[in-house]
Design a protein around this nucleic acid. Structure first.
Lengths: 250, 250
DNA sequence: CTTGACCCTCACGCTGCGTCATCCCCGATA
DNA sequence: TATCGGGGATGACGCAGCGTGAGGGTCAAG
């Protein structure tokens, strides 16, 4: 039977940690004296070893409790999940290190941060986030298919499509500035052009097209693309037009 | 001039985050209406972009504030520090992934965790921690030098040294069990053997030898080595003997 | 004048303990 | 036996960065 301090120093943790584990029910003392002293025996020592093992792996304490107390707990799945999470973290950190290196390099070239294009600096991460967003809205296969289709185009075709997009965007902006209603014929006509433009890479159904509108509102990159700077509210306007188009025509 | 929600969606963050940044003084609105509404202009937008840039890099908000407001702040050093920290994290996570893989493998071989040698599983990390501890006590060069010296020995010599260590440890244990005083001649004689044993790889001065004693008390691995299990308090006993020896004889 | 969408200010919650503050308990020494 | 030092115990706040209501004004549109 060990007291808190004995167990703590033997395990390389603090007394406070043992108190905490007792408080959250993760490791209760085997015996409590009449004076309130906690005493830990062999069994608790073993349990503590297991706790510290999983803690080393970065597992949250609540989950550790489940591992140890719930025989139905799927430990294998949990470990695999942690593995994946750690790998994700590693990838993320590697990206950040690259960004830091670029920033350091530009600083060493005596560029002021004001001259710097922050956006260019974080482009890769931003793009990734974009894609994750898009996947969240429509699922992975759809996004992957769109990429496939896009890869098959020539440079001229790509430029063509980009110009068309800018045209549509400007048309939306003009109509919005002039106070047109999202449901008006003029706006709906542009919306149809937009729908056909989107269809270059992907043919959305009504729900997906309305979802695309939501994305324009909620996603900052899209907001910028759709002139939220000069015309605050423009993305919402476009999204409304798209929702109406989806309901009426798709 | 944008309201909180406008700026928040444009930047891809939450309104709450803007409130928070205002509360901690990281990003104050350019203007506050009579009704208490926050309004952000172009300048604040730019500042927010910088804030988010550094936040992406995992920099704490307080540090970001320093970067932006204190012209004397050494940004380059901070970035290099972050880089190093991230790399450390990556290395740590890679180690954890290996441990997880070993654990998963042993689980798939249908071994129960009870059969498992936890210690073997985390040996590499533990050893690293050990070394870091040791370095904390005596500095890097000293530890490195000890390793050099150790590498130059033959296998027989190593075995010899190990046996000597076990002898000393057992002698200490017997004396402790029999209630000898740390300052007694018998105990001090063993302590001198111990001092000479340590000198195989390294010659500590008085402070360092006493520090080694502290390490025996504070470090769980050393505690285990010095029989804390069978004879609770034995490490403290040895440490006391070492402190006395250091004071009297070194 | 009424919605509905925003705005505000508290204020607790989450993670895993570190760090006092305050008080009780026990063995050893004077 | 009084005392003293080294534990032991229980709160309770703090930290980082917001998420998430609760409860209550504000504003533009219909």
């Amino acid at each position: 039977m060990r007291t808190v301090k004995q167990l703590a120093t033997a395990a390389g943790i603090s007394v406070r940690t043992l108190h905490h584990y007792d408080a959250i029910g993760l490791l209760r003392p085997g015996h409590v004296g009449a004076n309130g002293y906690r005493y830990y025996g062999k069994e608790e020592l073993l349990r503590l070893q297991q706790i510290l093992f999983y803690r080393e792996l970065g597992m949250p304490l609540a989950e550790i409790g489940a591992v140890l107390d719930d025989p139905a707990f799927d430990l294998l799945a949990a470990l695999r999940g942690h593995r994946a999470a750690l790998q994700g973290r590693i990838a993320q950190y590697q990206g950040l290190i690259q960004t830091i290196d670029r920033t350091i390099a530009s600083l060493e070239r005596n560029e002021t941060m004001e001259d710097n294009d922050y956006y260019a600096g974080i482009a890769p991460e931003t793009r990734d986030r974009w894609e994750r967003e898009a996947e969240k809205y429509w699922g992975k296969e759809a996004v992957a298919a769109a990429h496939e289709k896009a890869r098959a185009l020539t440079k001229e075709q790509v430029d063509q499509i980009r110009r068309e997009m800018e045209d549509i965007r400007d048309a939306f902006a003009r109509l919005f500035r002039d106070g047109a209603a999202p449901g008006s014929d003029a706006v709906q006509a542009v919306t149809e052009r937009h729908y056909r433009w989107v269809s270059h890479s992907w043919t959305p159904d009504a729900a997906a097209f309305a979802g695309l509108g939501r994305l324009y509102v909620e996603n900052p990159e899209f907001r910028a693309t759709y002139k939220d700077d000069e015309l605050p509210g423009c993305p919402e306007f476009i999204a409304a037009a798209m929702a109406i188009y989806a309901e009426r025509s798709l």
